[in-house]
Design a protein around this nucleic acid. Structure first.
Lengths: 194, 194
DNA sequence: ACCTGAACACCGTTCAAGT
DNA sequence: ACCTGAACACCGTTCAAGT
């Protein structure tokens, strides 16, 4: 219904400059990069930034939407080339790696699965949630995942794993380790006791 | 060796006022509570705050040291009244609950197990790490924990679980759930396949 | 319709002046 | 030895004035 009237040429140009500047700034300084600085990099007044993006989250999401979509697309690729359980595991691994590799992305993904957050109902959230749901369903059907685990729980736990790994010096290596512990459990393998 | 000369009376009084004001402010506004506000609450100039606490972390730690000690003490109590595996599990649960219940505490505990952080070498860090180490060792000896899991990994994962649970509306209930998934693993119980 | 940039409130941090 | 509070730099956000 809402015909999205095309933006005026200068508005469109500023919008794109802001996106580019934001991606740079977030990559350099993380999610808390200065909005003032972003506006300056884009060669616009701070008011223009607010006109296009009402808050930091909106800007962060717009700047990283392509990456989110790429992550979601990977889910399909992995599902096509691996058994369901392994596909899920591999995807969660890539999700965590991306979260830490691309500064600011972890915060965005977190807010996409946070119940109260304004980020919960966005395109970005729908994108990751959808990808997770498909992998989870396949893994469940294949008996490779506890049947009582919901996609959103998995995404939250992945966010937790990334957060935990980030605390270590060799964060990259820790992701694999912590993810394995999460998948297999901390208790020793099935010791059939009394 | 370094004889800690007693503080001048007014210094001591200001120090304590700051601690009290900080505890209040952190509880109200979380770890990012305004330092200016804390100084004002304590009836002190901002310079005085910096004289006693060189940075936010130092203040946060000093304000919550008693709580950290209480958490560590709980480890001993639980170890005395439960089998090692259950004691460990119960303690991790209480750790997560405390992390979310006391605003700002999760951040402090996180920095205590973060490799690079200035918080890694503090009394607070030694306190939780020590408690975790004792529980881990007992649980390992009892065969209730994978032998290749280090205390610091467990503390980081608990931090991750608290972070994940915090994303849900009913955070309290999610802690138990996520911790169980971590302990038992996401894969279905020991399906003896081919 | 959109942009600009001044303006305001707020915050962290430092330091010269005081006692 | 310790405290005070002014001062500075920086940031988020708003809004009146422009085109």
């Amino acid at each position: 219904m809402t015909q999205v009237r095309p933006m005026r040429a200068d508005a469109r140009r500023n919008y794109e400059r802001l996106l580019k500047a934001a991606a740079e700034a977030f990559a350099e300084h993380g999610e808390n990069a200065s909005l003032d600085d972003i506006a300056k990099r884009a060669g616009v007044g701070p008011g223009t930034l607010y006109r296009h993006f009402p808050n930091r989250r909106a800007l962060l999401e717009a700047a990283y939407l392509d990456r989110i979509e790429a992550i979601a697309a990977r889910a399909g690729e992995l599902a096509d080339s691996l058994p369901p359980g392994e596909a899920l595991r591999a995807w969660l691994y890539e999700l965590c790696v991306g979260s830490l590799q691309v500064r600011g992305l972890k915060a965005l993904l977190g807010s996409a699965v946070a119940d109260g957050s304004p980020g919960a109902g966005t395109a970005c959230a729908a994108c990751v949630r959808g990808a997770a749901a498909r992998l989870v369903e396949a893994a469940r059907r294949d008996g490779a995942l506890r049947p009582d685990v919901e996609p959103v729980d998995l995404l939250r736990l992945a966010h937790g794993v990334a957060t935990a790994a980030e605390l270590a010096d060799e964060a990259g290596g820790r992701i694999r380790r912590y993810l394995t512990l999460l998948m297999e459990g901390l208790e020793p393998a099935a010791a059939p006791s009394d």
